[in-house]
């Protein structure tokens, strides 16, 4: 099955991005495809490579990048939400790209399921 995932929160204040990541990992482990993760609202902060969590804590920015590299997951950051929050191409972690909200709607059309995580 083809899953699209929507993440509405950043990697620190809320559990949403953690839950989304665990869901994506489990879906891939079960043989499903995660075609796209779309980051909206404060979710765009998941793409910020300048984030430096303490070394004994999980680093979701890095985990998303690794997931993208290993499993060809398309990580899309909403351009309008990103610009408001200072997320631009030069701070993007590997595997992320900035694009329009149309990519979210397209994931809903092309994918079999869209699963949303937020707060």
């Amino acid at each position: 099955m083809k899953f699209g995932i929507l993440v509405n929160e950043g990697p620190f204040t809320h559990q949403a991005s953690d839950s989304a990541y665990q869901f994506a990992k489990a879906a891939i482990a079960k043989g499903h495809e995660v075609m796209r993760v779309f980051f909206y609202h404060d979710g765009v902060n998941n793409a910020n490579k300048l984030a430096e969590p303490p070394t004994d804590d999980r680093n979701l920015v890095k985990l998303w990048s690794e997931l993208a590299a290993e499993h060809n997951v398309d990580l899309v950051v909403c351009v309008a939400a990103a610009l408001r929050r200072g997320i631009k191409d030069d701070v993007l972690a590997p595997g992320f790209r900035i694009s329009g909200l149309g990519q979210l709607i397209e994931a809903g059309i092309v994918g079999d399921r869209l699963v949303t995580f937020g707060d």
Binding site: M1, Q22, F23, A26, A29, K30, R113, V115, T116, F117
Partner: peptide, 16 residues
């Protein structure tokens, strides 16, 4: 989480 994935696949749509 794998059970979560199974439920998301079993039901036709997800609402958060």
């Amino acid at each position: 989480y794998e059970g979560f994935v199974d439920l998301a696949a079993e039901y036709e749509a997800h609402q958060a």
